[in-house]
């Protein structure tokens, strides 16, 4: 078995397994901590608020835009770019069809792939430069935040090298980074990719009971 076959085969399946099981464990673990039932007479729906809160926080409020625009641009650029890269990049679609789902979908054209990759890179760099330069972010950032940023950067960088599909080793290194990323994800700050649903939802539910949409 070649190194490429190993990182795309058994190691990938192991990493994906860890990703799914550990993510489930952590997600359910948070919910299982439990919460006292709120018995104050409600004015609105907590369940409705849970959903509304999730949508509400997707959209930044205009009043804060002037002070937070850099983060909004960086954050949206990085996250949307990354999502498009992973889900619509031609090599990814082919890989997911071949290894996981057995079916595929229309990928982005090559120029589109390069464009979203550039957007994602630019977004990530903006966020990371802010993390190391802005006094507020420097104070509150932990080692885990930097590790997460560096890891995702390496995954994307090795992906860019592998894009030329000129050498198996480049593809293998990219896959190795992806495997490491999948294993690291559920134990790290990167897990906010799932917990945001709970945090926004919990706040939304509290305010929903009060008849507010915050």
């Amino acid at each position: 078995m070649s190194f490429l076959e190993f990182v795309e085969g058994p190691l990938f399946l192991f990493a994906a397994g860890v990703f799914v099981l550990a993510s489930l464990w952590r997600f359910v673990g948070i919910i299982r901590i439990g919460r006292k039932k709120d018995i104050s007479p409600p004015k609105g729906s907590a369940a409705g608020g849970f959903i509304a809160g999730n949508f509400r926080h997707f959209f930044p409020r205009g009043i804060f835009a002037r002070r937070t625009w850099l983060h909004i641009v960086g954050g949206y650029g990085f996250h949307l770019g990354l999502l498009a890269l992973v889900v619509l990049g031609a090599p990814h679609v082919a890989f997911l069809e071949d290894r996981l789902f057995g079916f595929g979908w229309t990928p982005l054209p090559r120029w589109g792939f390069i464009l979203v990759a550039d957007v994602a890179f630019a977004g990530l760099i903006v966020l990371w430069v802010r993390r190391i330069s802005d006094p507020v972010m420097r104070l509150i950032s932990s080692r885990a935040d930097h590790i997460g940023s560096i890891l995702i950067f390496l995954v994307m960088l090795t992906g860019a090298f592998a894009m030329q599909e000129s050498h198996d080793l480049l593809r293998a290194i990219h896959m190795l980074m992806v495997d490491i990323f999948l294993i690291y994800f559920p134990f790290s700050r990167l897990f906010h990719g799932f917990t945001f649903v709970l945090s926004r939802g919990n706040t939304g539910a509290t305010y929903g009971r009060k008849g507010m949409n915050l």
Binding site: R35, F64, T68, G75, V136, D145, T195, L198, S199
Partner: peptide, 26 residues
């Protein structure tokens, strides 16, 4: 007092610092 709600907050915070931009003390 760290119930599932507070736990979800701690586990979701991305340390982006945006909250400072809304707090009148900062």
């Amino acid at each position: 007092h760290t119930d599932a709600e507070a736990a979800s907050f701690f586990d979701a915070c991305v340390h982006c610092g945006e909250c400072a931009q809304a707090c009148h003390f900062y």
